[in-house]
Write a protein that binds this DNA or RNA. Sequence first.
DNA 1: TTCGAGATCCCCCGATCGGGGAATCCCACA
DNA 2: TGTGGGATTCCCCGATCGGGGGATCTCGAA
Lengths: 217, 217
Amino acid sequence: MIKVMIVDDNDIVRRGLHTIIDAADDLRVVADAGDGRSAIEAARRARPDIALVDIRMPGMDGLTATRELLALDQPPHVIILTTFNTDEYVDEAIRSGAAGFLLKDSPPDELLRALRAVHSGHAMLDPAVTRQVIDAIADQAPRLTAQEKAQLDSLTAREVDVLRLVGRGLSNADIGAELFMTEGTVKGYVSAILAKLAADNRVQAARLAYRAGLDNS
Amino acid sequence: MIKVMIVDDNDIVRRGLHTIIDAADDLRVVADAGDGRSAIEAARRARPDIALVDIRMPGMDGLTATRELLALDQPPHVIILTTFNTDEYVDEAIRSGAAGFLLKDSPPDELLRALRAVHSGHAMLDPAVTRQVIDAIADQAPRLTAQEKAQLDSLTAREVDVLRLVGRGLSNADIGAELFMTEGTVKGYVSAILAKLAADNRVQAARLAYRAGLDNS
DNA sequence: TTCGAGATCCCCCGATCGGGGAATCCCACA
DNA sequence: TGTGGGATTCCCCGATCGGGGGATCTCGAA
């Protein structure tokens, strides 16, 4: 039996969700709340497996409530509910830790599928939201061009070591200390790197290092 | 009537998908292909609305096939099918332009839902895949720390102009030319920027500009 | 009206960077 | 057993950077 909590300031919506969920054999609503603050308390008492949280609420908004819920000892999974297809919140909701993002006009069985999927550790987004997320990923920085990849591949291992530190904003002297070589040696490497990467200066080389993800490893 | 094409090297899988899809009133399989190359030709002839593409195929793999299909005149939407929950390909599939990513063991009605959602311009991922995608987004670079945000906010508009160009790797002279000011003036701004951002040098300032997304706008 | 913040320019000066060599050393490959 | 590529070090030298001032001018808020 999957225990569900409903958090929505609209009484009618709460009743509607209640009806849909309790009609399923494997789901049961164990708590209700009309605002974020009482949701936290209710969750502490009822220990729901999943919280359905409206994103727009008076007082504590849904995203803040989500973060608070997930900070509990035995946190529920959180599915965000929203009325509109609001670009805005999707990214923030995901970063807040939500495992789902559904529109209130999606059909009841979609809600039930989502509850079950989320309960088994998966996640579910409304198809329209999925489209947004996918487009955002596809539009992300084109990574590296083929040319840039080839340029990076042409670097020797040692040059990559140096580039990594250039990317972090270290001076040649600092890089030398880090890699146990003379500043003069570092300068030689930096020159070689700039030539191979067709970069005018170390900032441009650092940019490439950053985009290639060389800086954080 | 939504026209669907099936691209899979396994004959049994093709038949199975065929049966599932044709059983629906609003869907019809209009083309079949066992490899990427023939899929392109088939798509050109049959003009399907959606192509279901196996990611693993002999010859042209599913992702390459996806890119080729999407390069056609009237490209179909592409849904990737895969047997395993393979971490690997999800990101690349999305970047290749796929509108869906389903596991072959998902229930038939999930496939039908996906086909309909994708046909209406939405997207659908298997819940397990959605979980991966969501986790990846949530784990992404923490953006900026509150402190870094405050530091950026403390910059004047003109300083931001300069920082933007510093982030692109321009020299002070180039920045001056770009913003119609003397190199000396630029140097003054850069010094102020480094002080406000607590950066040791322009590379570190550029890093911050890059992370703040200041460079591409 | 005064005052301060921002934008613009200027100067000096030391530190750092980047280009162009040149010289070892080592190791793999022919 | 050469030969060459990579790693390492050093040199010089001009260009660029960065710090620390000081000087206008404008505009808006006190």
